[in-house]
Lab assay of single mutants.
Amino acid sequence: TLFEALYDYEARTEDDLSFHKGEKFQILNSSEGDWWEARSLTTGETGYIPSIYLAPV
């Protein structure tokens, strides 16, 4: 399942991933609670993103 960003997000740590509204992600690991490891389909970068900023596509 792909997810789309509902809002912009600016990374706060080196493990976080910055993204823009409308960016799409492949989720790599969603077992860490509210922060999911994801790969951006726009940039190819991976990192942790807040799941509350996402909606399934």
Rank of each mutant, 00 (worst) to 15 (best):
T1Y: 12
T1M: 14
T1R: 12
T1W: 13
T1I: 14
L2R: 05
L2W: 10
L2V: 13
L2E: 07
L2I: 15
L2F: 12
L2G: 02
L2H: 07
F3M: 08
F3E: 00
F3W: 15
F3C: 05
F3K: 01
F3T: 02
F3V: 05
F3S: 02
E4V: 13
E4Q: 12
A5K: 00
A5R: 00
A5S: 06
A5I: 01
A5V: 01
A5Y: 01
L6M: 11
L6N: 04
L6D: 02
L6V: 08
Y7L: 10
Y7H: 11
Y7A: 12
Y7V: 12
Y7D: 09
Y7W: 13
Y7C: 10
Y7N: 08
Y7G: 07
D8L: 02
D8Y: 05
D8V: 02
D8M: 04
D8R: 04
D8N: 09
D8T: 06
D8G: 07
Y9I: 03
Y9M: 04
Y9V: 03
Y9N: 02
Y9S: 03
Y9D: 01
Y9L: 04
Y9T: 01
Y9K: 04
E10Q: 13
E10N: 11
E10G: 06
E10C: 07
E10M: 11
E10D: 11
A11G: 11
A11I: 02
A11C: 05
A11L: 02
A11Q: 07
R12M: 11
R12K: 13
R12A: 11
R12G: 09
R12I: 12
R12P: 09
T13K: 14
T13F: 15
T13N: 13
T13D: 12
T13I: 07
E14M: 10
E14P: 12
E14V: 11
E14H: 12
E14Q: 12
E14W: 09
D15R: 15
D15Q: 14
D15L: 14
D15P: 05
D16L: 11
D16A: 15
D16R: 15
D16G: 15
D16T: 14
D16N: 13
L17P: 02
L17N: 01
S18Y: 02
S18Q: 04
S18C: 03
S18P: 06
S18M: 04
S18G: 08
S18T: 09
S18D: 05
F19D: 00
F19E: 00
F19T: 04
F19K: 00
F19M: 14
F19H: 01
F19W: 02
H20V: 14
H20L: 13
H20A: 11
H20E: 10
H20I: 12
H20P: 05
K21D: 01
K21C: 05
K21A: 12
K21R: 11
K21I: 08
K21S: 06
K21N: 04
G22C: 05
G22Q: 03
G22S: 04
G22H: 06
G22P: 00
G22R: 02
G22L: 03
E23M: 06
E23Y: 04
E23K: 00
E23S: 04
E23N: 05
E23F: 03
K24N: 06
K24T: 09
K24F: 10
K24M: 13
F25P: 00
F25K: 00
F25H: 00
F25N: 00
F25D: 00
F25C: 01
F25A: 00
Q26H: 11
Q26L: 14
Q26C: 10
Q26I: 15
Q26D: 07
Q26W: 14
Q26G: 02
Q26N: 07
I27R: 03
I27Y: 02
I27N: 01
L28S: 04
L28C: 06
L28R: 03
L28Y: 06
N29E: 07
N29C: 08
N29I: 06
S30H: 11
S30V: 11
S30A: 12
S30W: 13
S30T: 13
S30N: 12
S30E: 09
S31I: 10
S31T: 13
S31Q: 12
S31G: 13
S31C: 10
S31N: 11
S31M: 13
S31L: 13
S31A: 11
E32L: 14
E32T: 13
E32M: 14
E32Q: 13
E32W: 11
E32K: 14
G33M: 13
G33Q: 13
G33P: 15
G33R: 13
G33I: 11
G33H: 13
D34T: 10
D34Y: 15
D34W: 11
D34I: 10
D34A: 10
D34Q: 09
W35M: 12
W35R: 15
W35A: 06
W35I: 10
W35F: 12
W35T: 07
W36V: 07
W36R: 01
W36P: 00
W36G: 00
W36I: 05
W36M: 04
W36L: 06
E37I: 14
E37H: 13
E37K: 11
E37M: 15
E37L: 15
E37R: 09
E37Y: 15
A38P: 00
A38K: 00
A38F: 03
A38G: 09
A38D: 01
A38L: 04
A38Y: 04
A38M: 07
R39D: 02
R39F: 10
R39K: 15
R39T: 14
R39H: 08
R39Y: 12
R39E: 08
R39A: 07
R39I: 14
R39S: 07
R39M: 14
S40M: 05
S40L: 06
S40Y: 02
S40Q: 06
S40C: 06
S40N: 12
S40H: 07
L41T: 08
L41P: 03
L41C: 09
L41G: 03
L41H: 06
L41Y: 07
T42G: 07
T42F: 10
T42A: 12
T42V: 12
T42K: 12
T43E: 01
T43H: 04
T43L: 02
T43F: 02
T43C: 02
T43R: 04
T43S: 10
G44V: 01
G44M: 07
G44E: 05
G44I: 01
G44F: 06
G44C: 08
G44W: 07
G44R: 04
G44T: 03
E45D: 09
E45I: 10
E45R: 14
E45F: 11
E45C: 09
E45T: 08
E45H: 11
E45P: 00
T46G: 03
T46L: 08
T46E: 09
T46A: 08
T46H: 08
T46P: 01
G47M: 06
G47Y: 07
G47Q: 03
G47K: 03
Y48C: 07
Y48A: 06
Y48K: 14
I49M: 02
I49A: 05
I49E: 00
I49T: 02
I49D: 00
I49W: 01
I49P: 00
I49C: 03
P50F: 11
P50L: 15
P50G: 06
P50H: 15
P50T: 04
S51R: 13
S51F: 09
S51W: 13
S51Q: 08
S51A: 15
S51T: 07
S51M: 11
I52S: 15
I52C: 11
I52G: 14
I52K: 15
I52H: 14
I52Q: 13
I52P: 06
I52L: 14
Y53L: 13
Y53H: 06
Y53F: 11
Y53Q: 04
Y53N: 04
Y53V: 06
L54C: 04
L54R: 00
L54A: 03
L54Y: 01
L54E: 00
L54M: 10
L54S: 01
L54Q: 01
L54F: 11
A55P: 01
A55C: 07
A55L: 08
A55Q: 12
A55E: 08
A55S: 11
A55Y: 09
A55F: 10
A55D: 04
P56S: 07
P56G: 05
P56C: 05
P56V: 09
P56I: 09
P56Q: 10
P56W: 05
V57D: 06
V57I: 11
V57E: 06
